[in-house]
Design a binder for these strands. Structure first.
Length: 187
DNA sequence: CATATGATGGACT
DNA sequence: GTCCATCATATGG
C-alpha cells in the first residue's frame, strides 16, 4: 500500500492538446487554499492551438504565447471579461498548445462550477497561479480519479462538440465533455 | 492616459 | 435564442 501515486505527471501533458483534453475528463483537480483542500472532477474541456487557431488571442499575445510554448503541465491563467480562465499547457515545449478547463464537478464541497469563470472563482484560482506548473507546488495539481481510473466503476461517455463562445472557430470539434453530467456548462 | 476587445455569466424574450 | 454589465489586458497617444 503506502502512498498511492495518483498525481498526473509531465508525460500526461506532453501530448497533443486534443488528446489531453479528452483524457483530462474524469480526472480530479486538487486545489489547496489556506490549508483547505478542494477536489473537483473535470467534466468539460477545450483544446487551443497556436496561430492556426483563429480563436486565440493568446497566440497573438506574446506573453500568453510564451506560456503556451512552455513545458507541458504549465498553468496558464487567462483573464477575460470579469473572469479568470485556467488552462494547462500541453504538447512539447515550444509547441504552443493548451487545454482550457471549462467545467468541474465539486467532489468534497459545494459550489457552482458550471463554467470556466465560475470554477476558477469557486476554487480561488487567479493570476497568482499563472505560469506555475502542476508538479512543483502544493496549491494545485491533478490526480487520477480513483473510481474512473479503474475503468468499470464510474465510467462515462465522452461527447465532442464545437467550442463555446468563440467568434471564429476552427471547423473542428475541440470541446470535450462528459455526456449527461449536470455540471457541464450549457448555452 | 484613452479606448477597444473578449476563451463570460446572467437576465431576459 | 438575444442583450448587456463588467474588468483585466493590449495597444496607441
Amino acid at each position: 500500500m503506502g502512498e498511492k501515486l495518483l498525481k498526473l505527471g509531465k508525460e500526461f501533458f506532453a501530448r497533443d492538446a486534443k488528446t489531453v483534453a479528452r483524457e483530462l475528463l474524469g480526472k480530479v483537480l486538487v486545489r489547496v487554499v489556506d490549508g483547505e483542500t478542494f477536489k473537483a472532477k473535470i467534466v468539460e474541456t477545450e483544446a487551443y492551438f497556436d496561430n492556426k487557431d483563429p480563436a486565440s488571442r493568446a497566440c497573438k499575445n506574446g506573453n500568453l504565447k510564451e506560456v503556451m510554448e512552455d513545458e507541458p503541465g504549465s498553468i496558464l491563467v487567462y483573464g477575460v471579461h470579469n473572469n479568470w480562465l485556467i488552462n494547462f499547457v500541453t504538447g512539447k515545449k515550444g509547441k504552443a498548445e493548451a487545454v482550457l478547463v471549462r467545467a468541474v464537478e465539486p467532489l468534497n464541497f459545494e459550489a457552482n462550477t458550471k463554467g470556466p469563470g465560475l470554477l476558477t472563482k469557486a476554487l480561488k484560482i487567479d493570476k497568482s497561479l499563472h505560469h506555475k506548473n502542476l508538479f512543483n507546488n502544493k496549491e494545485i495539481w491533478i490526480e487520477e480519479n480513483e473510481k474512473t481510473g479503474k475503468g468499470s466503476e464510474g465510467s462515462f461517455e465522452i461527447a465532442e462538440a464545437y467550442r463555446i463562445g468563440i467568434k471564429k472557430d476552427l471547423p473542428e470539434k475541440l470541446r470535450f465533455y462528459i455526456k449527461g453530467n449536470k455540471f457541464v456548462s450549457k448555452k
